[in-house]
Computed example of a mutant assay.
Amino acid sequence: MNPIRFERRRYTGGATPIERLARFSECLGGPTVYIKRDDQLGLAAGGNKTRKLEYLVADAIKQGADTLITCGAVQSNHCRLTLAAAVREGLSCQLVLSEPETGYQPHASGNHLLFHLMGAEKIEVIPADGDMQESMEKLAAALEREGRKAYLIPVGGSSEVGTLGYMACAEEIEQQSLELGIPFDYVVTATGSAGTQAGLIAGFAARQSSSSVIGINVSRDRESQEKKVQELLLSTAEFVGLKGELPASLVRCEDEYVGPGYAIPTAEMVEAVKLLARTEGILLDPVYTGKAMAGLIGLIRRGAFRKEDRVLFLHTGGTPALYTYADTFFSEM
């Protein structure tokens, strides 16, 4: 077993809760839906990237890095949490951000405000079609010339090391399932950079669990996303020495709820965010969890689950971005 599995920083005290969504489930008239509150993970405002960063930052420290460099959209949850982890560890952090079609707004709220509040050392904004990896490597080279050492983290923290965070989460879910006496038939999650879904699948496979993972795409088409998840799943399994077959059938992604594209609102997303807020008082975000919940609602309405199924929705966080979409929710799409 690769020793990296045991090299981990801890940013959350204990397991995140699992809650039964009684009023939400009753409203939909389908299976019983539960929610795993990874929006309550540690670091600034929480979210799924915290689990990945526990392993990534441990690796960075082991390699003697003094600066974390990562990339994402201008409202990237991953960039927010990477910066928060760097602050926690006394490291510097530089960000490469992709300019949105609407143009870059230096004083935007949401996550972008938090980048400045937490003191990112440098924010470099590149065109939407720019090469983020190349830009990160240039920043790292500049630091090296100064006698410093950078550790590069890919989009979403979705490398073999980062994916270990959701292998650990699968183990956590299995333990909670035993304690609660509730075997979960399905786990539903947003899927984008693939690390969360791949990690869950690998983690459940390692535990020989019968829980099936369904990814709701936030950007790509089904074929492209399933290929991305499968590739990361297999490389992670090899990385940790996971034995046994991991057939392609374990990877399931739904692409009907992406809408016009990544981070572009849909009427289904707006409905999902409002429904959970008004039945359970839980906030989702418009980019990831809102579309993932729209996918779960759509699957329930088309009869994809049995009434007796127990479905666990993974809340991957991202709520700071909610406040940058005020016009979308006031407009009643």
Rank of each mutant, 00 (worst) to 15 (best):
247 P>A: 08
247 P>E: 09
28 L>N: 06
22 A>Y: 07
110 G>W: 10
216 I>L: 14
11 Y>I: 07
267 A>W: 06
287 V>S: 04
292 A>W: 03
305 F>R: 15
97 L>V: 09
119 G>C: 00
326 A>Q: 15
253 C>Y: 03
12 T>Q: 09
251 V>C: 02
248 A>R: 03
162 G>T: 01
22 A>F: 05
171 E>D: 01
181 G>K: 01
238 E>C: 12
304 A>H: 12
34 Y>I: 07
199 G>M: 03
296 L>Q: 11
117 L>P: 03
253 C>I: 11
124 E>F: 04
91 L>G: 10
197 Q>M: 05
52 K>D: 01
133 Q>W: 07
285 D>T: 01
56 L>H: 06
186 Y>I: 01
161 V>M: 09
52 K>V: 08
302 R>N: 13
140 A>I: 13
80 R>Y: 00
327 D>L: 11
108 A>N: 13
175 Q>L: 10
115 F>S: 05
45 A>L: 14
4 I>W: 08
49 K>A: 03
104 Y>Q: 08
147 G>C: 05
201 I>F: 05
135 S>G: 09
173 I>T: 09
133 Q>N: 12
91 L>C: 12
65 A>V: 03
236 T>P: 01
2 N>Y: 05
54 E>H: 05
78 H>L: 04
225 Q>F: 13
98 S>Y: 05
107 H>W: 12
3 P>L: 09
319 T>A: 10
117 L>G: 04
68 L>K: 07
99 E>N: 03
166 Y>W: 08
314 L>H: 09
7 E>S: 14
112 H>R: 02
205 A>N: 10
70 T>N: 01
244 G>N: 08
28 L>C: 04
73 A>E: 08
190 A>M: 08
183 P>Q: 03
67 T>G: 10
206 A>S: 13
281 G>M: 00
317 G>A: 05
216 I>G: 05
156 G>P: 00
158 S>F: 00
210 S>P: 01
93 C>G: 03
240 V>K: 13
253 C>P: 13
277 A>Y: 09
202 A>Y: 02
272 A>M: 06
114 L>P: 01
66 D>P: 06
217 N>A: 12
124 E>D: 09
91 L>V: 10
65 A>I: 02
14 G>E: 05
163 T>L: 02
128 A>P: 00
35 I>D: 09
237 A>K: 02
311 V>H: 09
148 R>M: 01
86 A>L: 04
109 S>D: 15
41 L>P: 07
104 Y>W: 15
280 E>D: 12
44 A>K: 13
307 K>Y: 07
107 H>F: 14
276 L>S: 12
92 S>T: 08
180 L>V: 00
59 D>Y: 02
